[in-house]
């Protein structure tokens, strides 16, 4: 597939000296695939555009009106109609399947990905590394390590876009969205907000620094680690008194949260919900919306008391409760 791309070697990289490059830098594991798909579509488009131009202009010249020469009446032709229905259909289906394949690559993060939390707000990006370092508008990542972003907005819809990685994902208020990438080339790349979000939409931009792993470690050390999200979450879990109801004792007022991540939560009135970030978030802010089966609707709403970053911390903590609650690490 990448051989398509190799047809355009002169355009392959953007080195800053070219005044009008045709491709952005290609710096992630999917960017080559996206470029190959693009090159294929450009090929298809050139083929059909040239075909149509040639037919239309050719016929216009060849059959131009001349005195005494008349048009030949032609009704149509079923074989031709079939030809130009089925050939485009077949090509379209190829594009569809190929595109869907690439897409699945960009949505499904590898399970060993390192997770970074991203919060968007008018008009800045806030990031937190799993080791606790925080950044604003800049993002440092190691090359060769898959990085998964868990993103949410504090206000309106934004969109996280790194052209060099060919990834983009809307960052929506009220629900988490994720995307992932694995940088392949060290360098500094644009980070854009791609969804219109108000006055300074065009200034909601930043930089992504892809560092080789050693440099990344050095950067982490220099960036001053704060608490990790999980530690912060564990503290919140006690200070907000979640642990008074959610613990492993029998007769606890709320369900035990340990080892639940990724599983199902059976709901009152039938149905179930996946126990994921969105479910935990909703349970904290709007406990009445979905009630766990077998428990009274006792849980108070924490809406207005916890911000997006605290929610992300709580979620990181609950996610880490892989084992039964007794075995959890105490902060």
């Amino acid at each position: 597939m990448t051989s398509w791309f190799a047809l355009l070697p002169a355009l392959q990289t953007y080195d800053g000296s070219q005044t009008a490059p045709l491709f952005p830098p290609s710096a992630s594991t999917v960017s080559g695939e996206v470029d190959a798909l693009y090159a294929f579509l450009v090929g298809v488009s050139i083929f059909f555009s040239v075909l149509i131009f040639a037919l239309v202009i050719g016929f216009t010249v060849r059959f131009r009106r001349r005195p005494g020469v008349h048009a030949t009446p032609i009704e149509g032709s079923l074989p031709l109609e079939l030809l130009w229905t089925l050939v485009p259909l077949a090509i379209a289906m190829v594009i569809f399947v190929w595109g869907a394949k690439v897409y699945f690559r960009t949505v499904r993060a590898p399970s060993d990905a390192m997770q970074i939390d991203v919060t968007g707000k008018q008009w800045m990006w806030k990031m937190q590394h799993p080791t606790g370092q925080r950044e604003i508008n800049d993002l440092h990542v190691p090359v060769g390590v898959p990085v998964k972003l868990r993103m949410i907005s504090e206000d309106v819809i934004h969109s996280f876009y790194v052209p060099a990685f060919r990834i983009k994902r809307d960052v929506v208020p009220g629900r988490y969205s994720t995307t992932w990438f694995e940088a392949t080339q060290p360098g500094e790349y644009h980070l854009f907000c791609a969804e219109y979000c108000g006055t300074k939409h065009s200034q909601m931009i930043g930089r992504v620094f892809a560092l080789d792993p050693v440099e990344y470690q050095a950067w982490l050390a220099g960036a001053g680690a704060a608490e990790t999200p999980r530690e912060a979450g564990a503290k919140l879990f006690t200070s907000l008194r979640c642990d008074t109801c959610h613990n492993s004792q029998s007769g606890a007022r709320g369900p035990d949260l340990a080892g639940r991540w990724g599983g199902k939560s059976v709901l009152r009135g039938g149905g179930s919900a996946t126990f994921d970030a969105d479910h935990v978030r909703e349970s904290i802010l709007n406990p009445g919306a979905k009630l766990a089966l077998g428990y009274e609707p006792l849980m108070p709403s924490y809406s207005g008391q916890v911000g997006e970053e605290q929610l992300l911390a709580l979620i990181a903590y609950i996610e880490s409760l892989a084992a039964p609650q007794g075995a959890k690490e105490k902060p």
């Binding site: 695939e33 996206v34 693009y38 579509l41 488009s45 555009s49 149509i52 569809f96 960009t106 983009k168």
Partner: peptide, 30 residues
Amino acid sequence: VLGFLGLFTIGGLTGLFLACLGLDVHVHDT
């Protein structure tokens, strides 16, 4: 008419780029 045929064809074909999931991730909202 000739202008239409040429330009609509290009516009329509680039619609295929956008309808193509993997590619739209990159070019959406650009």
